[in-house]
Design a protein around this nucleic acid. Structure first.
Lengths: 348, 348
DNA sequence: CTGAAAGCGCTAACAT
DNA sequence: ATGTTAGCGCTTTCAG
């Protein structure tokens, strides 16, 4: 092993003929330590290239300064934005981030939670997997006072934890209304797997808009996605138009599905928005330059990450000061980006 | 603090009236421990919900079972694929992943390296930031025997470390040749910041293809991107066509730039590929359904992540067994996805 | 097959 | 202002 032994506090202490405690304090900029010793310590430390061992500090202080993140998927514009937001806030506050990808699998989510618990993370940020119905794998965190904040895909039943979500219902309602108001009907919905809270809320929003417009829901206008790929979007659009050639509009659960659908419509010789208007959810950068530019419900991913991380850090602080912290649910607004794919007439 | 005290080995030991050493061994499935004790320990552990403290184990064993990853950007299809690949391999091998985002900033990269070193990661995976010229912030890893593997954007000067890259030169050469062979000339290049190894290689590939086709490079055909956004791609395409209305083709450093350029060309009333053929680099899923479908050089992100992580884990093992490990450079092939945006005639 | 003891590197009482 | 002591929870000799 080439590994040079790491420099420790003891090494510095020996070299300077003082105690490790003093060295530790000098390095931490403690109040009552002489300016002179502080100087000598800091100087030697940088000269010997001393680097503190966070594992040791963590063990001793019973805190790791690490937060865990469990996310269904990382190759996804929205989720990666959230992660970016989380990391910005966490690093600024001196916390590191340990990332796990559940891949939409309940089992993986359970072992991820375990692994992160074993790593003694100071807090946990989770967006749950499609398949997760049971949340007992987060119990040990809550029982041992490790704050957990859920974001985006959250367990709606749990009410003793904080959550950060976007207003999926409202966004879906607005999107559907936007189409219905233009007289676009029959209006279909390509929905996501209904186990996900987000997909469920979006479906509800769609149904509420229909009701508001005086239409009764029609199951032949609601098709369900499984893997949420472009291909699936295209496939469902083809199936939809075969079954319901009279369909005039589609509200898709994500931009991926919407873009896949648009492509299929184009291939079928159907023009959007003239024959079938389409709107998605998430607002990828790319959607705006598609042909036709895709309308979409924008959700603030970066902000969600920042807010969720901020909330978690506050809860960690509260826990440290033995303060109580009431779980809160923060609902972020979505914004409708109406572009050509959903606009039959010049903008109302 | 609500935090229930965590169960420790000592708790189990006391409960069973045996020593912590035995408990530790039983849990780790050591050879010489009686089946009976093993059973009792395992049973009590699961009953009391014992969870090992990896911090403590790490401190003692002088290994954290964590690998650090520093990446310029996470909201990026290619990079997030790489991360996914890394995580798959790491978690399967029992390693956790601590992620840092340098945001293309040298300073952030330096502090990230420091933070990860302090966390005593067992190995480091890095794709360097645009601005990084100096690599001494990785010295402490190498000096203390912590393996470092660079991927994608690598320090070309360093030769004592392993690297995993795609064949940027070859990919760019193929892409350019593909256009030149169709008689597409003048051929422009929207290049990336030349500090990045990838951007440099792509430029070289473009230049080599020009030379091969008997053309002399022309600086008015090479425009440089800074922030690599859609808008920048569009802006540069406009500037290019204003300066060189005779330009017949564009090889863009990434799909973002290519798509931005395509959009601008469309707005200028220029048809692709008929008037200006375009090809990108990275092959996003979305590129294939763009109008026109964008040709691109596909690079295997997921595989790069898997390979880089695998290599790093092997080096970590080697280091543990005090074996020597020769740094290697793995070059992954790219594949040209020729679609309509670059095909003037039916496929040659 | 099991236990005792030492110690990984750091910090926090408690002294002085 | 600094030192002494005592762990944090775990693994690993070394004994038996």
């Amino acid at each position: 092993m080439l590994s040079k032994k790491q420099i420790t506090l003891a090494d510095l202490a020996r070299e300077l003929g003082i105690s490790t405690a003093t060295v530790s304090r000098a390095l931490k900029d403690y109040p009552d330590i002489s300016a002179e010793t502080k100087r000598r310590v800091v100087e030697l430390a940088s000269q010997m290239n001393y680097r503190p061992n966070s594992l040791a500090a963590g063990l001793r202080k019973r805190e790791s300064n690490v937060i865990g993140v469990i996310i269904p998927s990382i190759v996804d514009h929205f989720f990666s934005s959230v992660i970016k937001g989380i990391m910005e806030v966490a690093y600024d506050a001196g916390y590191r981030v340990m990332l796990c990808q559940s891949d939409e699998s309940y089992e993986k989510e359970v072992t991820d939670a375990q692994v992160l618990f074993d790593s003694r993370v100071d807090g946990l940020l989770v967006s749950i997997a499609h398949g997760s119905q049971d949340y007992s794998h987060f119990d040990e965190f809550l029982e041992s006072g490790v704050p957990v904040v859920f974001f985006d895909k959250v367990p709606e039943q749990l009410d003793k934890v904080s959550k950060v979500v976007v207003n999926d219902f409202e966004g879906a309602y607005e999107a559907s209304m936007h189409l219905l108001r233009q007289g676009i009907y029959p209006l279909a919905h390509l929905e996501g797997p209904q186990i996900a809270s987000t997909s469920r809320q979006r479906r509800q929003g769609y149904l509420a808009a229909l009701a508001q417009a005086g239409h009764t829901p029609d199951e032949s206008l609601i098709l369900t996605c499984q893997d949420m790929t472009l291909e699936e979007g295209a496939m469902l659009a083809r199936r939809l138009m075969a079954a319901r050639p009279d369909c005039q509009g589609i509200f898709a659960v994500t931009d991926t599905i919407a873009l896949g659908a648009l492509t299929a419509l184009k291939a079928l010789g159907l023009r959007s928005p003239e024959q079938v208007a389409v709107i998605g959810f998430s607002d990828w950068t790319i959607s705006a330059i598609f042909e036709p530019p895709l309308s979409s419900v924008a959700q603030p991913g970066l902000e969600m990450g920042r807010i969720a991380a901020g909330l978690l850090l506050r809860e960690i602080q509260a826990e440290k000061q033995a303060e109580t912290f009431l779980p809160e649910t923060i609902v972020l607004p979505t914004t409708l980006q109406a572009r050509r794919s959903s606009l039959r007439s010049p903008r109302p």
